[in-house]
Simulated assay, not measured.
Amino acid sequence: MRPNHLPWLAVALLALAPAALAQRSSSGKAPAQPKKLYCWNQDGQRVCSDALPPEAINYAREEISAKSGLRTGEVDRVLTEEERAVAAVEAAQRALDKAAAEMRRRTDEAMLMSYRNEEELRRVFTERTALVDNNVQTARYNVVSLREGLVSLLRAAGDRELSGQAVSSEMRGNIRLRHAELLRQRQLQASFETQRADLDVEIADILRRYRTMKGLIAPEGATPADGAAAAAPDAPAVASTPNRQ
């Protein structure tokens, strides 16, 4: 027995058929994609074409609608291996700078909450400053001691040569060892002194930030009037007294 109605799926397909046929062109093909032009610089000249040749794939180019003449897209040129390496390093540095800024912000917040006054904050640096100072003094003492010992050995070796005696291999070895140790201690001294100078800068920067957060000094870039208001927000106004003749 034949059914007297079509299934719902067949009805839906029949309803969509006219719309699908309307999208077909008279030739029976699907409508073509909008044409566009490619423009790029090659050998110092501006080149535009409706097709992108293989040699221009790596060039920076603009995509322009052939119908409206308006730019519809832009493609950057392909980076070289060296440029990609530089870009990767710059991206990593930006990430480090962002992390450092975030760490500094958190440090400032913790510092503001942890220390009630500047004196408490200064105590934090006492032990660290004493340690670096001790390293500097020890390195300076070692440099002086090693230098004096090296001068003594060189003088003794010179006296033996002047008297016609041979300088023993043991003495020559001691001179080389003492000289190498002197150079190492000088490098340590320079490193410790640099650390001490950097510590002074760090302490001054932290104290400045702490005073700014506490409102004791004006932020960088503020006007002198803003700084005076921040330093003494509750200072009473003083009326000027005219000079009497």
Results as ranks from 00 to 15, higher is better:
Q189M: 07
E202W: 06
G221C: 01
S168T: 15
P219Y: 07
Q189D: 10
Q187H: 11
L177G: 10
A197Q: 14
P219F: 02
A156T: 00
L162G: 00
S191D: 15
D205K: 07
R184L: 08
Q189G: 03
A166S: 03
L146Y: 08
N142Q: 12
G215R: 01
Q195W: 06
R196N: 12
P219M: 09
L183A: 14
G215Y: 10
A156K: 00
G215K: 05
V144K: 15
V201R: 14
S169Q: 14
F192M: 09
G149K: 05
A197C: 07
L154H: 01
M213K: 02
D200N: 10
A197R: 12
V201Y: 12
S145G: 01
R178T: 15
I175D: 09
E181R: 02
R155P: 02
Y210V: 01
L154M: 05
V144R: 15
V143F: 04
V201K: 14
S163H: 02
E193P: 00
I175N: 05
I217W: 04
D198H: 11
T212E: 13
A166C: 00
I206N: 12
L182A: 11
Y210W: 15
L216D: 11
G215T: 13
I175M: 07
E181Y: 08
V201G: 04
N142M: 09
A197I: 11
R186M: 12
I175R: 01
S191A: 14
A218I: 00
T223H: 09
G215N: 10
I206E: 10
S191R: 11
F192L: 03
G221Q: 02
E161C: 00
R186S: 13
E161I: 00
N142I: 01
